[in-house]
Simulated scan of single mutants.
Amino acid sequence: MTSEMHTSEIEVARLRVRPQFLYVRHGKLERRKALVIQARPRRGEAPGHHIGAGFTATKKIGNAVIRNRAKRRLREAARVLLPQHGKAGWDYVFIARMETPEIGWARLLDDMESALISLAAD
């Protein structure tokens, strides 16, 4: 029973529409070799147990197969790290960089973790 889910666990919800991404764009920014993270507190909502997460990769990254791979890697890394290092009541947009599809998994996790910690520090 030690692996039982707690009701106080932070829920991560996906950002899906363009205005959500554009809102977060004007918040804080952290760049790393493997990714860029934008973060901003959600407007008009009291902080709760909810974090917003959006994922994007531009055509500069590569064709659709490569962009999808980059976004899948970002989603999985965020699934692991965002509940620990993200701030409740904030939205995050994860942007793939050229290195995202091929960089080592441990390096991707390190880059994301350090960026999330920096964003949470303020």
Results as ranks from 00 to 15, higher is better:
residue 47 P to W: 15
residue 4 E to V: 07
residue 89 G to N: 05
residue 68 N to P: 01
residue 10 I to M: 08
residue 39 A to R: 11
residue 88 A to Q: 09
residue 93 V to L: 09
residue 67 R to Y: 03
residue 32 R to H: 10
residue 69 R to P: 01
residue 92 Y to E: 06
residue 80 V to F: 05
residue 41 P to M: 14
residue 43 R to M: 13
residue 107 R to I: 09
residue 83 P to R: 08
residue 86 G to T: 09
residue 29 L to T: 13
residue 49 H to C: 10
residue 92 Y to G: 04
residue 79 R to I: 03
residue 70 A to I: 03
residue 53 A to R: 04
residue 116 L to G: 05
residue 111 D to T: 08
residue 87 K to S: 11
residue 55 F to K: 02
residue 39 A to I: 09
residue 9 E to M: 05
residue 114 S to V: 02
residue 32 R to G: 14
residue 73 R to G: 04
residue 64 A to P: 08
residue 41 P to G: 14
residue 82 L to V: 09
residue 6 H to R: 13
residue 4 E to F: 07
residue 24 V to S: 12
residue 9 E to I: 01
residue 122 D to A: 10
residue 122 D to H: 12
residue 51 I to P: 11
residue 23 Y to V: 06
residue 28 K to T: 12
residue 114 S to N: 06
residue 72 R to T: 02
residue 40 R to S: 15
residue 62 G to H: 04
residue 32 R to N: 08
residue 68 N to G: 03
residue 18 R to Y: 02
residue 63 N to A: 09
residue 35 L to M: 15
residue 116 L to P: 05
residue 92 Y to F: 14
residue 113 E to L: 02
residue 64 A to N: 05
residue 22 L to G: 01
residue 80 V to S: 11
residue 20 Q to M: 09
residue 84 Q to D: 14
residue 76 E to S: 12
residue 84 Q to N: 08
residue 35 L to A: 14
residue 31 R to N: 11
residue 113 E to Y: 00
residue 99 E to P: 00
residue 113 E to C: 04
residue 80 V to D: 08
residue 7 T to G: 09
residue 86 G to R: 07
residue 34 A to Y: 03
residue 19 P to C: 11
residue 44 G to P: 10
residue 3 S to P: 11
residue 79 R to K: 11
residue 10 I to H: 01
residue 30 E to T: 06
residue 54 G to Y: 03
residue 66 I to R: 12
residue 42 R to K: 14
residue 76 E to N: 06
residue 5 M to C: 05
residue 105 W to C: 05
residue 31 R to M: 12
residue 31 R to P: 05
residue 102 E to T: 11
residue 13 A to R: 14
residue 101 P to I: 09
residue 3 S to M: 04
residue 90 W to R: 06
residue 12 V to T: 14
residue 39 A to Y: 13
residue 65 V to M: 01
